[in-house]
Design a binder for these strands. Structure first.
Lengths: 203, 203
DNA sequence: TAGATTGTTAATCGATTAACAATC
DNA sequence: TAGATTGTTAATCGATTAACAATC
């Protein structure tokens, strides 16, 4: 029936979701054309993207706002609660632990880890910071399959290897290194400095 | 001669740069094939990407490591120092202010702004935190054309409008909103929660 | 020279856009 | 009904990959 969603489409779903939520109304309809104009994209693209979700538009009227939001949230899995762990309780790590935005997508940071003894034992954003040695036990106990890496670049691969061993299936990596992982483990990289550099080079 | 670089290629240049630097040698040669294997990409793609920079490989020997690093750095403008400002001195903003990685790309955060009076006046990562009212003066004085937005989603557009008025040409936006900007202003978005959600949905 | 590697031109692949029939 | 809008099939566009001549 439907082919698997392309990553490009998947990346746009949270954009639609943010926009729809920002409208602040769950009743009434909205057309793909209206969404497209608001976000500066093609309307066919919007319809194609939404077709991967359980959303179902109606000719002449468009999509019901509330239903559309619910459909995207269901597709992205915002309704279940998925536990995630974070490695590296530095400034960025602690910022992420304090950040409330993950719960909108049904993700909860349940534990943090740091190699530095001074940081372990503390609680940040409701998460206890454990030493690395506790990783296997805590990951096993919480059932986390999702991890965030905020450690310095030179130890990121080592940390990642440990995570994979502990059964982590997906990693959001903030360290500026390309992590080597076995097939079946999914990695997304966010290099904030590189993103700023790309903008700078275009000025 | 050369067409303008596609954004996809531009995004890979920092990846090559990180990898080459991680090798820790500036003498000796490296082939596009070796880079490709290490990073899991096609070797023709690597050569095409590098062809946008001033790098010049030699048949049979490949690229000189030091020259290649220098060429990518030159292309990305890592050698000049470009001033940038940051809006929103919350946990994420402060983490970015303390982060040392921008200087590798010739970018320096020179000032921060926050609407909260309690935060203004402080110094984080060598940056003074100013009130919003000082934006025009400080941006004018520093000559910053690059800005980072770390404010909550509901005020991001407002902050962005101010920035554009102050002559900012490029914005790195961490708020989960699609910013409306006039033509000629470049925006890149980093939605950290959405990135984690994309991974989570694929588990 | 022979062979490895570059740089470039042609082919392929996938994503976006255009066209349009279905339908409310 | 007429017209707006969806969902889908075909066309286009751009990026990646393959093929290959140049060359060190």
């Amino acid at each position: 029936m439907h082919r698997e969603i392309p990553v490009t489409s998947l990346q746009r779903l949270p954009v639609y979701l943010n926009y729809l939520k920002s409208l602040g109304r769950t009743d009434g309809n909205i057309s793909s054309g209206a969404i497209a104009r608001a976000l500066g994209m093609g309307e066919v693209l919007v319809r194609k993207d939404l077709a991967y979700t359980p959303a179902h538009g109606r000719a002449r009227t468009g999509y019901n706002c509330g239903e559309l939001i619910a459909a995207i949230e269901e597709y992205l899995g915002c309704n279940r609660v998925l536990p995630a762990v974070l490695f590296g309780a530095g400034a960025l790590g602690r910022a992420l632990l304090s950040y409330g935005g993950f719960k909108n997508y049904g993700i909860e940071l349940v534990a943090a880890f740091d190699c530095c003894e001074e940081k372990t034992g503390a609680t940040v954003g409701g998460c206890t910071v454990y030493p690395y040695a506790a990783a296997r036990e805590v990951i096993g106990r919480t059932g986390a399959r999702l991890a965030v890496i905020c450690v310095p670049a030179d130890v990121a691969q080592e940390v990642c290897d440990t995570l994979v061993e502990c059964g982590i299936a997906a990693v959001l990596n903030f360290a500026p290194v390309l992590l080597k992982v076995p097939e079946g483990v999914n990695v997304r990289n966010i290099d904030m400095a590189a993103n700023l550099a790309i903008l700078a080079s275009q000025i």
